[in-house]
Design a protein around this nucleic acid. Structure first.
Lengths: 244, 244
DNA sequence: CCTGTCCGATGGTCAGACCAATTTTAGACG
DNA sequence: CGTCTAAAATTGGTCTGACCATCGGACAGG
């Protein structure tokens, strides 16, 4: 008699086991250094096969929560950086917050990225940026939202910093936000404003004005592409378009 | 006689498989969306049992690098933030640019993080930060460099932003830079300066002064923990083509 | 008390099997 | 010939039972 139907997503057994261990660790039932029961014993307790127990342990190990020693046993390990991160992410929401977090991270990263790009962009990279904006103009004239060119611009700007780590992180963030941005650009007026804003950024980058570029990007993110229209708290405000 | 005894860790088979996949993804042999061979086929190719293959896949899945769909297959997934972070950590250590990039990224992220922390830190988190600084003081008094507490401080500060994405990225960056920071703190004077600098940051965070916190962190990173020993200042415009 | 050996417990791996979901294919139908 | 449908093949998820290398502690011997 399950009054509440959980997500339709079928849980895999080992994932379920992992979450049970997360709970046990969070509640303090399992502390650092504790040794957990043998795999065969766990299998019996959870009423699953040893394979599932082992796959669960593999996940926990990759999260830094446990370490396995052949012949000795498997031990709780909550004194690593990894484990802290895992428990934090596990405690805080893992759903709608992600989008908000990504927006915030972009807002932190992009202005200084624009500044770095202004200092380091090669003529070829500037040309590439200009080309992208022309493409964006074409897409808009054609009635498209220009979201691809929009994303491409931010990515090319990150590339102009010549910082591989930054490029990777930005690409991940942009990818997560691309869908949301597409929605934002549905309003006709925004497309032109976004393009104009991009042009302003490029102009400062071209001039090598890193301060101006940073401010232009900040303005772009604050005014033209507002991060989170809805003030929703962690309530089940799933963005539209969620489909299994 | 203390001949350099290198640990002869036995590599577990699934660990080996995981690393092989890391390499394949890094080299570009496996791109986003690619479907990798069936588990039974992989078992035959690697000459291991299906169990080991599955445990390896479980690790990769927990790292966000792949997703498994029953009946369909297992697919490469490198467009999530998680996957980027893992690949960053996995890639680091290869190439001197990576270290420089990481320093630069930290310098971009940490000041605004300090500002966010000043706005959002709970009393418990402030207490945790203070506790970390006391621990740093103890370590220094004891003749240690205090590098663990140093890293812990930056991490706890990121945690105070309540932004899971930021926390993960910062943890990856801090992890990479911890070793280098340890070297930097070898100079005796630096330890106390670093601690004093941390105290200043905490003071601004406690006061909720996000502007002051940001400036204090910027000062900390610029003056106390300089990224590049050489003159390299961000002001100068880098000549084109300084990097392949 | 110390030392070396033995044995049970434990993690790591293997092989084969069945199930459920999905994809592909073959066949029926218009 | 194209389209829809049902059967077959494929694939991930799970289970069972087994063997091995290693570790820990008990135990006997010095």
């Amino acid at each position: 008699m399950q009054a509440q139907i959980q997500s339709v997503k079928r849980r895999r057994l080992h994932e379920d086991i992992v979450q049970q261990f997360h709970a046990l660790i969070r509640e303090g039932a399992l502390k650092h250094g504790d040794r957990l029961p043998a795999e065969r014993e766990l299998a019996e307790q959870f009423q699953v096969s040893r394979s599932s127990v082992r796959e669960a342990i593999r996940s926990l190990e990759r999260q830094g929560l446990v370490v396995s020693k052949p012949g000795a046993g498997t031990f709780i390990n909550t004194e690593t950086l990894d484990s802290v991160v895992t428990l934090l992410s596990s405690t805080f929401g893992t759903g709608s917050d992600a989008l908000r977090d990504a927006f915030e991270m972009r807002h932190l990263l992009e202005p200084p990225i624009a500044a770095l790009a202004a200092q380091r962009a090669t003529p070829e990279e500037v040309a590439k940026l200009r080309e992208i904006l022309e493409e964006q103009q074409r897409q808009i004239d054609q009635g498209d939202t220009g979201v691809e060119a929009d994303t491409a611009f931010h990515f090319a700007l990150a590339a102009a910093t010549h910082n591989a780590a930054l490029i990777k992180v930005v690409s991940a963030v942009e990818d997560v936000l691309q869908h949301s941005r597409g929605q934002s650009l549905e309003e006709p007026g925004r497309r032109q404003r976004s393009l104009a804003s991009h042009r302003q950024i490029l102009e400062r980058v071209e001039a090598g004005d890193y301060r101006g570029a940073q401010q232009a990007m900040d303005h772009h993110l604050t005014v033209v592409e507002p991060s989170s229209p809805q003030s929703g708290e962690t309530g089940g405000s799933e963005p539209a378009g969620w489909r299994p």
